[in-house]
């Protein structure tokens, strides 16, 4: 609010009013800061404890700033075979899944954005219907078994790779692209595939980036599909690994570390170090995602 309108100018002359406005602003900001603090403080607590030296932690006193720092918990977690297996699984699911997800969604959305396409309405209805009705857990499980995908990481990737909501948002984005560019390219003899790859996709980079990040987050966070479709405990992704570490009373077996290292670091500190490692990639890409929220993509998505 750099430019004041006449009403505000008049108000600004009344010093009393300005003071009450300041009080009002500080109260609002204080409440909001409190709300934001509930989101930040738990992480701060976990990060600090995860770096606390075991001798300080076991003495029982709690500091918001540890007297003695240590990265021992991290070195134990990161070296454990359990973590490396889980990291491999999550890396595969995320880095193979994300491109498949974006390509499948964007292709289908582009197809549905062509108004004159024969059968467009019917395909559109079929896509929307998946939003409305799902077969349920057991039919999905049996289907996965029939397809031979049980205990394969593709069982975590493919079912969520093409979603009605994403297709609909991408479709409305593609329909709003200026028609004349495509028409001009068509007159110049540009084929459909080339037009999609060289003209339409480069024009939609911000939208594609958003959905790439969404896909990345959803694959990184994959938990439910892992416990249902994966049977080999060595193939479980990081989220399952973290839940095992947090929920089990003795973590040494989950971590799969050498016997002589057991009890070197308090289990609670190891648990927190594990959480920090699992959440770190999300925190790292979050600022990039955040860039797009305020812009049209998200608001347009919510409006449908």
């Amino acid at each position: 609010m750099s430019v004041l309108n006449p009403v505000q100018k008049r108000d600004a002359r009344h010093l009393g009013m300005r003071a009450s406005e300041n009080i009002y602003q500080s109260i609002v900001c204080f409440i909001l800061a409190l709300i934001a603090a509930t989101m930040v403080l738990p992480f701060l607590y976990v990060i600090v404890i995860s770096f606390t030296d075991s001798s300080v932690y076991e003495s029982g006193t709690f500091y918001m700033w540890p007297k003695k720092w240590s990265v021992e918990a991290y070195s134990l977690i990161l070296r454990g075979q359990g973590f490396l297996n889980a990291l491999k699984a999550t890396a595969f699911i995320t880095f193979v899944g994300t491109p498949i997800n974006v390509c499948a969604n964007a292709g289908l959305a582009y197809m549905l954005s062509k108004d004159a396409l024969p059968g467009r309405k019917m395909i559109n209805r079929l896509v929307m219907f998946t939003m409305l009705f799902g077969a349920g857990m057991i039919p999905n499980f049996i289907n996965m078994r029939n397809l031979g995908l049980i205990n394969s990481w593709f069982a975590n990737i493919l079912p969520s790779a093409c979603g009605a909501w994403t297709v609909m948002v991408m479709k409305s984005f593609f329909s709003e692209l200026p028609r004349d560019i495509e028409e001009a390219a068509e007159i110049d003899g540009c084929g459909t595939i080339r037009m999609f790859v060289q003209i339409v996709l480069p024009l939609s980079l911000a939208m594609l980036a958003t959905f790439t990040l969404f896909a990345f987050v959803s694959y990184w966070n994959c938990y439910f599909s892992a416990i249902i479709y994966l049977t080999d405990s060595n193939k479980m992704p990081l989220q399952v690994y973290l839940s095992k570490i947090v929920l089990s009373t003795d973590i040494s077996e989950v971590v799969d570390m050498d016997n002589d290292l057991k009890n070197k670091v308090p289990q609670e500190v190891m648990r927190m170090a594990c959480l920090v490692v699992v959440v770190l990639p999300i925190l790292c890409i979050y600022p990039f995602m955040q860039k797009y929220f305020a812009k049209g993509v998200m608001v347009g998505a919510v409006k449908g």
């Binding site: 499948a104 289908l108 197809m111 077969a135 039919p139 999905n140 289907n143 093409c162």
Partner: peptide, 25 residues
């Protein structure tokens, strides 16, 4: 529209395999 359909094939295949096929069960 053959090439346009081709772009939509991967997505449609995934939807048929993982959204419509289970409904038979």
């Amino acid at each position: 529209y053959k090439w346009t359909y081709l772009l939509g094939v991967p997505g449609m295949t995934l939807m048929i395999l993982f959204n419509y096929l289970p409904m038979g069960s």
